[in-house]
Amino acid sequence: MIAPSRASTAFLCHLCVALTLLAGSAHALAHGLRVTAHAAGEDVVGQALYSDLTPAAGLFVDILDPTTATRLADGSSGDDGRFRIAVPSLPAYRVVVEGEEGHRAEAHAPRLTSGGAVDVDALRLLREDIARMEARIRLQDIVGGIGYIFGLAGLTAWFMARRRK
Protein backbone atom coordinates (compact mmCIF):
# COMPACT_ATOMS: atom_id res chain seq x y z
CA MET A 1 0.00 0.00 0.00
CA ILE A 2 2.76 2.44 0.94
CA ALA A 3 5.18 1.67 -1.87
CA PRO A 4 2.87 2.58 -4.80
CA SER A 5 1.69 5.74 -3.03
CA ARG A 6 5.30 6.91 -2.57
CA ALA A 7 6.08 6.09 -6.17
CA SER A 8 3.02 7.94 -7.43
CA THR A 9 3.67 10.96 -5.18
CA ALA A 10 7.24 11.15 -6.43
CA PHE A 11 5.96 10.85 -9.99
CA LEU A 12 3.49 13.68 -9.42
CA CYS A 13 6.24 15.85 -7.95
CA HIS A 14 8.50 15.26 -10.95
CA LEU A 15 5.63 15.91 -13.36
CA CYS A 16 4.78 19.09 -11.52
CA VAL A 17 8.32 20.48 -11.65
CA ALA A 18 8.81 19.47 -15.29
CA LEU A 19 5.56 21.03 -16.50
CA THR A 20 6.13 24.19 -14.49
CA LEU A 21 9.55 24.66 -16.04
CA LEU A 22 8.03 24.05 -19.46
CA ALA A 23 5.18 26.50 -19.08
CA GLY A 24 7.24 29.46 -17.95
CA SER A 25 4.78 32.25 -18.72
CA ALA A 26 4.09 32.88 -15.08
CA HIS A 27 3.68 36.63 -14.87
CA ALA A 28 0.02 36.40 -15.72
CA LEU A 29 -0.53 34.41 -12.52
CA ALA A 30 -0.12 37.37 -10.22
CA HIS A 31 -3.51 38.80 -9.37
CA GLY A 32 -3.28 42.50 -8.74
CA LEU A 33 -1.92 45.04 -11.20
CA ARG A 34 -0.63 48.43 -10.01
CA VAL A 35 0.54 51.39 -12.03
CA THR A 36 2.37 54.62 -11.20
CA ALA A 37 2.78 57.44 -13.69
CA HIS A 38 3.58 61.11 -13.97
CA ALA A 39 4.02 63.67 -16.71
CA ALA A 40 7.58 64.74 -17.49
CA GLY A 41 8.05 67.31 -20.26
CA GLU A 42 6.32 66.10 -23.43
CA ASP A 43 5.82 62.54 -22.15
CA VAL A 44 3.91 60.53 -19.60
CA VAL A 45 6.28 58.07 -17.95
CA GLY A 46 5.42 55.33 -15.52
CA GLN A 47 5.71 51.73 -14.45
CA ALA A 48 3.26 48.82 -14.16
CA LEU A 49 3.86 46.09 -11.56
CA TYR A 50 1.96 42.96 -10.56
CA SER A 51 1.14 42.45 -6.90
CA ASP A 52 4.12 40.10 -6.44
CA LEU A 53 6.29 43.03 -7.64
CA THR A 54 7.24 41.46 -10.98
CA PRO A 55 7.19 44.00 -13.85
CA ALA A 56 4.11 43.90 -16.08
CA ALA A 57 5.59 43.67 -19.57
CA GLY A 58 3.78 44.14 -22.87
CA LEU A 59 0.53 45.62 -21.54
CA PHE A 60 -1.55 48.21 -23.41
CA VAL A 61 -1.28 51.70 -21.93
CA ASP A 62 -3.88 54.37 -22.71
CA ILE A 63 -3.44 58.01 -21.73
CA LEU A 64 -6.76 59.82 -21.18
CA ASP A 65 -7.77 63.39 -20.49
CA PRO A 66 -9.04 63.23 -16.86
CA THR A 67 -11.85 65.76 -17.47
CA THR A 68 -13.32 64.58 -20.78
CA ALA A 69 -12.08 60.94 -20.74
CA THR A 70 -11.00 61.19 -24.39
CA ARG A 71 -7.98 59.14 -25.40
CA LEU A 72 -4.91 61.29 -26.05
CA ALA A 73 -2.30 58.64 -26.80
CA ASP A 74 -1.53 54.95 -26.36
CA GLY A 75 1.45 52.65 -26.19
CA SER A 76 2.66 49.57 -24.38
CA SER A 77 4.91 48.73 -21.44
CA GLY A 78 8.43 47.42 -21.99
CA ASP A 79 10.12 44.35 -20.52
CA ASP A 80 10.73 46.12 -17.21
CA GLY A 81 7.10 47.26 -17.03
CA ARG A 82 8.05 50.87 -17.76
CA PHE A 83 6.48 53.05 -20.46
CA ARG A 84 7.13 56.48 -21.95
CA ILE A 85 4.42 57.90 -24.19
CA ALA A 86 4.40 61.31 -25.90
CA VAL A 87 1.27 63.36 -25.10
CA PRO A 88 -0.14 66.84 -25.73
CA SER A 89 0.47 69.21 -22.85
CA LEU A 90 -2.06 69.07 -19.99
CA PRO A 91 -1.73 69.67 -16.22
CA ALA A 92 -2.63 66.01 -15.42
CA TYR A 93 -3.55 62.75 -17.14
CA ARG A 94 -5.42 59.53 -16.43
CA VAL A 95 -3.45 56.37 -17.24
CA VAL A 96 -5.25 53.08 -17.91
CA VAL A 97 -3.19 49.90 -18.20
CA GLU A 98 -4.91 46.82 -19.56
CA GLY A 99 -3.64 43.27 -20.07
CA GLU A 100 -5.17 40.48 -22.10
CA GLU A 101 -6.06 38.25 -19.16
CA GLY A 102 -8.52 40.66 -17.62
CA HIS A 103 -5.95 42.72 -15.71
CA ARG A 104 -6.69 46.44 -15.55
CA ALA A 105 -5.35 49.29 -13.45
CA GLU A 106 -5.75 53.05 -13.44
CA ALA A 107 -3.58 55.84 -12.13
CA HIS A 108 -3.67 59.61 -11.91
CA ALA A 109 -0.56 61.10 -13.52
CA PRO A 110 0.14 64.66 -12.32
CA ARG A 111 2.85 66.88 -13.73
CA LEU A 112 5.77 66.78 -11.30
CA THR A 113 7.45 70.13 -10.79
CA SER A 114 10.45 70.54 -8.54
CA GLY A 115 10.76 73.56 -6.31
CA GLY A 116 13.99 73.94 -4.38
CA ALA A 117 16.10 71.05 -3.10
CA VAL A 118 14.14 68.05 -4.45
CA ASP A 119 14.50 67.27 -8.15
CA VAL A 120 11.97 65.48 -10.35
CA ASP A 121 13.94 62.24 -10.39
CA ALA A 122 13.92 61.99 -6.60
CA LEU A 123 10.17 62.63 -6.60
CA ARG A 124 9.70 59.87 -9.19
CA LEU A 125 11.66 57.37 -7.10
CA LEU A 126 9.66 58.35 -4.03
CA ARG A 127 6.35 57.85 -5.85
CA GLU A 128 7.49 54.45 -7.12
CA ASP A 129 8.55 53.40 -3.62
CA ILE A 130 5.17 54.38 -2.21
CA ALA A 131 3.40 52.44 -4.99
CA ARG A 132 5.54 49.37 -4.28
CA MET A 133 4.69 49.50 -0.58
CA GLU A 134 1.02 49.92 -1.44
CA ALA A 135 1.10 46.92 -3.79
CA ARG A 136 2.81 44.57 -1.36
CA ILE A 137 0.57 42.12 0.43
CA ARG A 138 1.10 42.60 4.12
CA LEU A 139 0.97 39.85 6.72
CA GLN A 140 -1.54 41.76 8.85
CA ASP A 141 -3.97 41.83 5.89
CA ILE A 142 -3.74 38.04 5.53
CA VAL A 143 -4.15 37.44 9.26
CA GLY A 144 -7.03 39.93 9.39
CA GLY A 145 -8.79 38.17 6.51
CA ILE A 146 -8.49 34.79 8.25
CA GLY A 147 -9.95 36.43 11.34
CA TYR A 148 -12.97 37.63 9.32
CA ILE A 149 -13.50 34.12 7.92
CA PHE A 150 -13.44 32.49 11.35
CA GLY A 151 -15.66 35.21 12.77
CA LEU A 152 -18.22 34.64 10.01
CA ALA A 153 -18.03 30.88 10.58
CA GLY A 154 -18.69 31.46 14.29
CA LEU A 155 -21.64 33.71 13.48
CA THR A 156 -23.10 31.10 11.13
CA ALA A 157 -22.60 28.36 13.72
CA TRP A 158 -24.40 30.50 16.28
CA PHE A 159 -27.37 31.08 13.97
CA MET A 160 -27.52 27.38 13.13
CA ALA A 161 -27.44 26.44 16.82
CA ARG A 162 -30.30 28.86 17.55
CA ARG A 163 -32.35 27.43 14.71
CA ARG A 164 -31.88 23.91 16.05
CA LYS A 165 -33.35 24.79 19.49
Binding site: T20, G24, H27, I146, I149, A153
Partner: peptide, 22 residues
Protein backbone atom coordinates in the same frame (compact mmCIF):
# COMPACT_ATOMS: atom_id res chain seq x y z
CA UNK B 1 -14.50 27.85 7.05
CA UNK B 2 -11.21 25.96 6.76
CA UNK B 3 -11.45 25.69 2.96
CA UNK B 4 -12.51 29.34 2.71
CA UNK B 5 -9.46 30.39 4.69
CA UNK B 6 -7.23 28.11 2.59
CA UNK B 7 -8.56 29.64 -0.66
CA UNK B 8 -8.17 33.15 0.74
CA UNK B 9 -4.54 32.62 1.78
CA UNK B 10 -3.41 30.30 -1.03
CA UNK B 11 -3.41 32.93 -3.77
CA UNK B 12 -1.25 35.33 -1.69
CA UNK B 13 1.61 32.86 -1.30
CA UNK B 14 3.75 32.88 -4.43
CA UNK B 15 6.25 30.05 -4.54
CA UNK B 16 9.05 30.72 -7.02
CA UNK B 17 9.47 27.73 -9.33
CA UNK B 18 11.75 27.88 -12.34
CA UNK B 19 11.47 31.23 -14.08
CA UNK B 20 8.19 32.34 -12.54
CA UNK B 21 6.11 31.86 -9.43
CA UNK B 22 3.28 29.47 -8.70
Amino acid sequence: ALLGAAFFVASTIHVPVGVGSV
